[in-house]
Amino acid sequence: MMRKKKLLVVIMAGIFMLFGCGSVTDQPVKSIKIGISVYDQYDTFVGQMMTAFNSYATQKQEMTGITINVEIYNASGSQSTQNEQVESMIKEGYNVICINLVDRTDPTTIIDAAEKNNVPVIFFNRELVEEDLGRWDKLYYVGAEAFESGIMEGELAAEAFEEREELDKNQDGIFQYIVLEGEVGHQDSIVRTEYSVNTIIQKGVPVEKLGYAIANWNRAQAQTKMSQLLEEYGDKIELVLANNDDMALGAIDALKAQNIPQKDWPAVVGIDGTDVGLEAVRDGEMIGTVYNDKEGQAASMLELAYTLATDGDISSIAMMEGNTIRLPYIKVSAKDAGAFTPPGAAGY
C-alpha cells in the first residue's frame, strides 16, 4: 500500500518535471518587423533613402492596419559589425532583413545566417555579385543599373560641353577632366567612372584626364582632394566627374573655399540626385546629376519586404525580374532641374 503511494508520488514528480518546461507563447500576427543595416548612416543617399523608406512604411501601415516596425542599424563601415547586427536581428525575430552591404564581396556570413534561420534578405544599393545572389532563393536585390548612371553622367557632361562653349576654358576642343572616385574597389565607382568617360568619348567629345582622387563617397574628403587637385591643376580643370553628389558638392565646397567666382568653375556632374545635390543643380552650381530613384527603391523595397513578411505573391511587384528589382535612373540637368519632381512616390 505504502509502496504504491510512493510510486505514485514519484510518477507525479516525473510528470511535473516533464511539463515544467513547456510553455509556448504565440506571436502577435498583426505586425511585421523589418530590420535594416546600412553601411554608413551618414551617407546622404542612403540616409535619404531610409527616410523615404520610413515614411512609406508609416503610410503602408496606415493603409493596411498591419504594424510595420522598422529598425535601422548602422554598420559604420565595418562588415563584422554588420554581420553581428544581422545575427542579433535574426535573434530578435525580424521577418525580413534589408542589407546595405559594407563589403559587397563578402555577404557569405549574412547569407548563411539568414538561410539557416529562413529569414529572407533584401540587399539594396550596394549590389552583390550574381553568384552570391543565386545562393539561396530568398535573397533579393533592389537597386539600379550602375552602368546606366555612368552613361547618363557622360551624356550630361557631353551635352553640356556641346551646349556651353565657355566650359572649354582653354578652347582646345578637349575636355580636361578629373574624377572623384568613391571607395576603392567599389563596383559602383568603377562602373560609373568607366561608363561616364566612355560615353563622353562615344558622344564625340575628346577628353583628357588630368587626375583623379579617391574620396570615399565623402563630401569633406572630396573637398580636401579637390583643393589638392585645384592646387595642382588650377584653371586647367574643365570637368569634375564625381561618382556621387556628395563628392560633387565637396568639390564645389573646395571651389567656394578658394573664392573662385562661379562663372570660372569647371563643370561638376554628380550622381544620385540627393536633395542637396538637386538644390545645387537648381542653383546652377552643378551642371547636372543623375537621379537615382531613392524613393522608388525605398518603395519597391518596402513592397517586397511587406510581401515577403506577409507571404504574399512577389511576382506581382512591379519591375521584379527574377530576384532583383532595378529602377531606372533619370537625368537631371540644370535646365530641367527646376521642374523636376522625384517620380518614386507614384504608388503612394
Binding site: M2, K5, K6, V9, V10, M12, A13, F16, M17, G20, C21, S23
Partner: peptide
C-alpha cells in the same frame, strides 16, 4: 513510524520536484 516515513518521502519528492523545476526553469 509509517507516518514519519511517509512525510519524509513526501518532503523528498517535493524537494526533487522543486529542484527539477528550478533546473528546468532557470533559463526562463
Amino acid at each position: 513510524n509509517r507516518i514519519y516515513i511517509g512525510c519524509l518521502t513526501a518532503v523528498m519528492c517535493i524537494i526533487i520536484a522543486y529542484a527539477s523545476y528550478g533546473m528546468l526553469n532557470k533559463g526562463q
